[in-house]
C-alpha cells in the first residue's frame, strides 16, 4: 500500500467534517465537526512528514493541536454564554443579522 492513502483518508474526513459544519444546527456538533476537520489536516501533516522524511510536518500538527485546544476553550465558552442568554445552542437562532 502506498502511504498516499492516508492523504485520501484525510481528504475524505475533511470533506465529511465540512459537510457536517454546513448541515448541523447544534453549535456543539458544528464545533465537533470543525475538530474533525482539524484532525484530518493533522493526519495530512503527519503523512507529509513521512513523505518528506523530516519532522516539520509533525511540529505543525502539534501547533495545530495547541491552537485547536485554545479555540475549543474559547468556542465552548461562547456556546455556554450563548446558551445562557438564548436558552438554545442552535446556530440558526443567532440569526439577528438579517433584515
Amino acid at each position: 500500500m502506498n502511504p498516499v492513502n492516508y492523504l485520501y483518508l484525510a481528504a475524505l474526513l475533511f470533506a465529511i467534517g465540512a459537510t457536517g459544519v454546513l448541515i448541523r444546527r447544534n453549535a456543539i456538533v458544528v464545533f465537533m465537526c470543525i475538530e474533525l476537520m482539524l484532525n484530518a489536516c493533522n493526519l495530512a501533516f503527519v503523512a507529509f512528514s513521512r513523505l518528506h522524511g523530516n519532522l516539520d510536518g509533525q511540529i505543525i500538527a502539534f501547533f495545530t493541536m495547541v491552537v485547536a485546544a485554545a479555540e475549543v476553550v474559547v468556542g465552548l465558552a461562547i456556546i455556554v454564554s450563548l446558551f445562557r442568554s438564548r436558552h438554545s445552542a442552535s446556530v440558526d437562532d443567532a440569526s439577528l443579522m438579517k433584515l
Binding site: 475538530e35 493533522n42 503527519v46 512528514s49 513521512r50 509533525q58 502539534f62 493541536m65
Partner: peptide, 21 residues
Amino acid sequence: LAVFYLANGAYFLGIVQIVVY
C-alpha cells in the same frame, strides 16, 4: 487517528492525540 499517527512514525503526536484531544 492517534493509531494512524503512531503508524506514521509520529509517536509523540499519537500519544498527545489520545491524551489531549
